[in-house]
Computed example of a mutant assay.
Amino acid sequence: MPGGQTPKELTPDSGRKLFGLQLRKARQQRGLSMDTFIEEFVGRTRTPISKASLGRIERGEYLAQPVLPSLLDRFFETDNELFVDMYDLACVEAVPQQYKLRSNLEREAVAIKAYGGTVIPGLLQTEEYARELFRAWRPGDEGWSETQGILRRKRQARLSSEDPPLLSVLVDETVLTRQIGTPEVMRTQLEFVLSMVDTPTCEIHMVPAGLGAHGLLGGTLILMTTPKGQTYAYEEAISTGTLVEAPERVQHLERHWDRLWGRSLSPMETARFLKKALEAFP
């Protein structure tokens, strides 16, 4: 440290800070400065990390990227996946309480039906599109935005796993034409949606604006079916989310979703619209 200063000790009062503290201790026990650690770590793992990012992680300001914990366990030859376990704890803590039940059900679901009436549903958001939304919600809080982005990518990893859910998505036309971020951000987002319109495990239908009023208008809905055949609904507003478990209420919402699915554009028609919409974002 410059001037012989000792790094400020962290108080590990959260999983994120505990992860950072253990990383700093492991590095210092090896006698590695931050610069030397980065040089050796990148050389052995081929995974880039900047000194600024390393500092933020060690201070417990940001969550590490999902790829980092297992690489740290191998680099430091830790027992029992120490960094992986601490990272999992930090991720659990970072999810607000009202979203934890939703997250658990989403991880287990064999089928997911989603409706996005205001923005692209989270499972289909690109990194930059999501970051623009997070920054709009908490302006100036880059640490929070970065953490939310990491959690979002962990959710999305399920879609490319060996056992992905069957994903069916309804998206309002206005969502696909409302620019979020720069034209480049929006173009990348629409290109990703286009790539997912009709795959073996994902189907996307656009709800045309001319359809008028419908039972899901003005909200966001996720329907999750577990391996046991139970379906749960999750309704989300700007800053709140409600898990719906009562069977009669879930059936009511699912009927609205199914009716809208039948009245929306097919994947082929949706793809045609997306290709046209992309022309507005060169």
Rank of each mutant, 00 (worst) to 15 (best):
F19H: 05
S33F: 08
V250C: 07
I57Y: 12
R27N: 02
Q22R: 15
R178T: 10
Q125W: 07
Q230F: 12
S264P: 03
G31P: 07
L101A: 15
L223Y: 07
R153K: 13
E184L: 08
E269D: 15
E142N: 12
S168I: 02
D163M: 10
L221H: 04
D198K: 10
A94G: 05
S70Q: 13
D258G: 00
A233D: 08
G149E: 08
R27E: 02
R255V: 06
I38H: 07
H252E: 14
E77T: 04
R16H: 05
Y234Q: 03
W144C: 00
L190T: 00
L101K: 14
K275R: 15
G140V: 01
P164N: 10
L82V: 02
E106T: 01
S264W: 03
R263Y: 11
R30C: 10
L159K: 07
Q5K: 13
K25E: 15
P227V: 00
I49G: 07
A157Y: 09
R102L: 14
G4M: 05
S103F: 13
D141N: 12
L54V: 01
T270S: 15
D85W: 02
P247E: 06
W137G: 06
S145P: 01
S239E: 11
E245S: 14
S14P: 03
E184Q: 14
G262L: 04
V95F: 09
R30P: 01
Q179C: 05
K276M: 04
D73Y: 02
Y62I: 04
Q125A: 03
N80I: 00
D35E: 15
R153S: 15
E235H: 11
P183S: 03
T270C: 06
P183Y: 08
P282A: 12
V175Y: 09
Y232H: 14
E254W: 11
F281T: 00
V250K: 07
Y99T: 00
T220D: 14
L167D: 07
Q148C: 11
T6A: 15
V175N: 09
Q156I: 01
V92R: 15
L278F: 04
D88L: 12
L265P: 01
Q230I: 12
E254R: 13
D13N: 15
H205A: 05
R24H: 08
E235N: 10
P267Y: 07
E184P: 02
L194G: 06
R255S: 11
Q22Y: 11
G4D: 13
L243I: 07
S14K: 03
L101T: 13
E58T: 01
G43I: 00
A277H: 03
